[in-house]
Design a protein around this nucleic acid. Sequence first.
DNA 1: GCAAAAGTGTTGTACGTACACCCATGG
DNA 2: CCATGGGTGTACGTACAACACTTTTGC
Lengths: 245, 245
Amino acid sequence: MAPSSNGATAPALAVSTVIFTLRTCPTGEMKLALALVKRIRKPFDGLWALPGGPLNITEDLSAAAARNLFETTALQPRYLEQLYAFGNLDRSPGSNVLDRVVSIVYWALVGSDEAAEAIESENVAWFWADELPKLAFDHNLIVEYALWRLRNKLEYSRLAHGFLGERFTLAQLREVYEAVLGRELDPANFRRMVAANGAVVATGERLEGTKHRPPQLYRYDASVELADQGPLATQNPAIQTGEQK
Amino acid sequence: MAPSSNGATAPALAVSTVIFTLRTCPTGEMKLALALVKRIRKPFDGLWALPGGPLNITEDLSAAAARNLFETTALQPRYLEQLYAFGNLDRSPGSNVLDRVVSIVYWALVGSDEAAEAIESENVAWFWADELPKLAFDHNLIVEYALWRLRNKLEYSRLAHGFLGERFTLAQLREVYEAVLGRELDPANFRRMVAANGAVVATGERLEGTKHRPPQLYRYDASVELADQGPLATQNPAIQTGEQK
DNA sequence: GCAAAAGTGTTGTACGTACACCCATGG
DNA sequence: CCATGGGTGTACGTACAACACTTTTGC
């Protein structure tokens, strides 16, 4: 038996999480960022990777994802959804087959205000989603897929809520959309799009202290149901998760 | 330690598959059906369940799904895609936690002509998708989710190809859509929808022997790329799979 | 008043739906 | 020639992108 083998007769199971947030970049605009951890052992020693770890036997899959999100950033997820199970044989080239790991990957959103105070150290850091280095394992592919899902789901769900506070202006909401989608949106059409959706309602309050005309503050209306997200969708006011009931 | 326990310190990993096909029902129309196996041991002894089993250590996830599809029906999948990983603690009520199983579920399409000759026995049978009995574990929920994905994906992909032969009439293609979606479609608009998509092209041949005007035969054009299915989509002419590269 | 952002109105295009209609074939 | 399904034309409604325009604030 090879020295690296652990003698397993079945593939090991791990849970990893792609943690997204929005951060203000030097030029002043919001950009999408994600949390990575530096590997300190083989394989891929020294490369950055998605946070993750083994699944405890008494722990739900989504709980494991939330746990390793917390262990990495000291934050709670504002949104959490299963992404995909990655288990191909070639995802850790050079490793012994008996060390094979199947990773069930989740993706999460954390509030941009909270993320600003999240831990950042020698081995944990935020990276711009569009400027990633070469990552360990198949993690570049995983992030690419997570980005694709995030962008797709943004339109017909209230995902943007995961990045914002309780009350927000339409300009802030639009900024979230622009950061995630990576392109500018027409303010006029954006306003109508949001109004047509119906999930966002005006509070009557206005945001004071701006340089110009004070914008109205809006909030998400909890009573409005979303577009059909499938049988697994559960609407939890605190954490919305795609986990099965 | 409880007698049913296997002494595991980590959850076991299994792969299951929702196998769809179209079958002609007594009234003459096509209906969506799926393959189930009868459980012959606890828990849920005697109930019908999705076919599945453990993942071999040298086997890709999709290969395991294709294998248990073959072991159940003696067929090859015409389409195969990962559905979701189900791993909640409460999915096998009454079982010991140490017997916990995380199931990575795939869904598959098999040709309706081939399925007609597929094995069917005391313990393996086809069920109408809209008339399912109470299934073992959380399998009713899983099937519901698979149905939702199938219906959603049908529109912006060439999924229907999985049910049909190489050449087909637009009426046959429409019949597939109607069976999957569970509602009738306007033939005129359906024709235009398919034409606009561009993935289906006329062969010039006609289907002879009908009672009335002979319809033209069409085929899928392999050179046309589909709508964006995300970074994991791979277009294999034989088996299209949502598995990562 | 001027700049800048909030917010409204108008128009054109694309697309899905409903449905009237013609065409070709077997009986 | 007639019933039936194949196949075309047309009109309407909704959704969205583009962009001109008005409103309200700070300076």
